[in-house]
Each structure stands twice: as structure tokens, then as C-alpha cells.
Amino acid sequence: MSDQTAHGTVPIACSINGRAYSLDVQVNERLLDVLRYRLGLTGTKEGCGEGECGACTVLLDGLPVNSCLVPAYQVDGRSVETVEGTDEQWAAHLHEHGTTQCGACTPGVVMTARWLDDTNPEDLSVREALAGNLCRCTGYRGICEGIKATLKARQQSSNEEGNP
């Protein structure tokens, strides 16, 4: 692709954190840039820009993706969830367990945790699910424990809601 064609724009319609958006995005624009620089959703971070660190993790149609690798035009007709659209209960729970230090990896970690909560995959441990979220501060124990405790608490509260 030449640099000239890289300047074309594409209209897209998508849902971000439950809100409908119509945008003209450039063909070389990343979902990460649309979130951060156009919509001001700066919770999603860029740690590497090459799909290695997971700081840019968002949920795309419910699946965790590295938003630095997703061309924005591919989001047309789909739904995106970011840390900003996350129930504050999450933060309150995770706060109890030393889950964050510098915070740069944290929004991505929260999104991976939300995916675990949504899908509850049987054959995947929290530790394995987090393999794509690099953290340079915590050593991961605090993150894994925080997520486990949060998942458990959420499970319990949804059970209680289910059986009053």
C-alpha cells in the first residue's frame, strides 16, 4: 500500500461502551488511536504498538484484542468495550489486592479480567489468561490474586441475585 492510499478515509458505525458512534476513520488509523486521540478515551494505553504488551487490550464483540493491531475500519458494525465502560465495582474489588502499581498495564489487565468474567473459560487459568498482559511492576501475584478474588466475589453476588 502506498502512502497516498494510506490517506483515504472510511466511514464506520460502531458501538463503544454501549454508545453508538459514526466516524470517518483513516485507513491507516488504529482502533487505539481512535479511542485515545479522537474520543478522549485515554484509559486504554499504548505500551508497544506491536501486539506484545497488552496495555491496549479492549473487548471487541466481547473478545480481548490488542487495539494497537486493529485497523479502525474493521470495527465497523461491531462493539467495543474499554476500561471506561467498566463497572466501578471492578476497581473497588481489585483495589483490595495490590493489583496495580504504576498503572500502565492496569486498564488492559482489567479488560482481560472482564473477558474471564464474561466467558468463564474452563480450561484456562487466570495466570494463563494474563500471559498477554505484560506488567513490569507487580510480579503478577497481586494481579492474579486480585482477579481471582474479584471473579469469585462477582460470581457470589450474581448467585445471590439469582436466588434471592
Binding site: R36, T42, G43, A91, G103, T106, V110
Partner: peptide, 22 residues
């Protein structure tokens, strides 16, 4: 005592240099 800025980081509200309005 829990980390003071913990909730701000966990909710993505904490502003790093590239997040500051400009």
C-alpha cells in the same frame, strides 16, 4: 493503608503524559 491513587489507575482515569488534554 491502600494505594492512594489505586482507584484512579484501576478505572483508567489516571492521566499520564500522553493522556493530558492538549
Amino acid at each position: 493503608m491502600k494505594r492512594i491513587e489505586g482507584i484512579s489507575k484501576l478505572t483508567g482515569r489516571e492521566r499520564y503524559v500522553d493522556d493530558l488534554p492538549l
